[in-house]
Amino acid sequence: EAADKVLLKTPIAFGTNLPALGTTITWVADRLDKVSDGTIRMKVYEPGKLVSPPEILDAVSSGKVNSGYATAGYWQGKIPAAALFSAVPFGPEAGEYMAWLYYGNGMSLYQEMYDTAGYNVHVLPCAILSPETSGWFSKPIEKPEDLQGLNMRFFGLGASVMEKLGVGTVQLPGGEIFGALEKGAIDATEFSQPAIDTRLGLNKIVKYNYFPGWHQQATIFELLINKDTWGEMTPGQQATIETTCMASVTNSIAEGEAMQFPVMAEAKQNGVEIRYWNQQMLDTFQEKWLEVAAEKSAEDPFFKKVWDDLSQFREGYDLWEANAFLPRKQAN
C-alpha cells in the first residue's frame, strides 16, 4: 500500500536567514523531502507570514496548521514547565540534555506536558543550540550591585533570575533590540550566540560581551506536529520524521560549535571586550536561580515534577561527569 503524501505547513519562530536559529529547519525540510522520496514535504513559513511565533502552539494544536517549529520557552506563559524543555539556567549541556531526553524520562515528560495541558500536538526535539552568550553590556559588571537598575532584554527562565538582581527585563523581538539599545530604551541585552548577535549589530553599540551563558547552556528547538496529522501518518513516515529530527540535532550542534569562534575572533579585533563572569557573579546567578526554581516548583505541580526528575537525573550524572572529562581550557 502506497503511503499518502504529507505536506507539513510549518510556521517558524526565527527567520531562516539567522544561522542556527533558522537554518536548522531549512536543513530539515530539505532532508525530509529527499529521505522520504518526496512523500513528506515541509513548507516553511517565515515568522509572522502565516502566524506569529507566540501563536504557533495554538495554531498547531487546533489544526489551523499541521506543524510548527519553535522553542518551548515561548509557551511559558501558557505552561510554566515548558521553559524547562527549552533551556535551563545552570542546566545541562547538550550531551547531558540529550541523555535525559532520549534515555531518561525527558521525552515522556515532554509529551506528557502538552497532553496534560490539553494541547493536541506531538512533540519532537529537532535541534539543539550550543551555549548562548550571557549578554551585552555597556560597562563591566564586576559585582551583583552593578546590575541594579539596568533595563535589559532577557528571555526565558533567566529573566526571573535577573529580576531578582534588580534588573528590569523585557522580551523584545529580535528586530527591535538594536534600536531599543541604541536609543537607550534598554541598557543591555542578551539574544543568542555570537554568530547571531553579530547579525543584529549589537557589537556596534555595546562592547562588553559576557560569557558563559549560564541561562542557556543548551537550547532545544522543537517540531510540533498536530496529533491527528501524526496519527494519520504511516509508521514509516513517523520514523522518517523522528530520525530526520534526531539527525538535525546532530547537525545543529555541529553547526553551532563550528561557527562561533571566527566571529568572536573578529569581534575581539573590532574592540569587543569578551569577558568571563567572575566566580562571585556566577555564584550569585546560581543562588538566585535556585530560589526561582523553588518558587516555580511551589507554584506549579508539573514544573516541580519535571524539575525534580531533571535534578535527580543530573545528580546521578554528576558522578560520571566529574570523572569522565578532561578539565576545560580556562577563558582568562
Partner: peptide, 24 residues
C-alpha cells in the same frame, strides 16, 4: 493545493491577536 478551509481561516484570530498584543 491551497489547504484553505474553515479551520485554516481560524488563523485570522491568531493574527488579530498579534495586532492587539503589539507594543509598537
Amino acid at each position: 493545493f491551497t489547504g484553505l478551509d474553515f479551520l485554516t481561516l481560524g488563523l485570522v484570530v491568531n493574527r488579530l491577536w498579534k495586532i492587539m498584543d503589539n507594543w509598537i
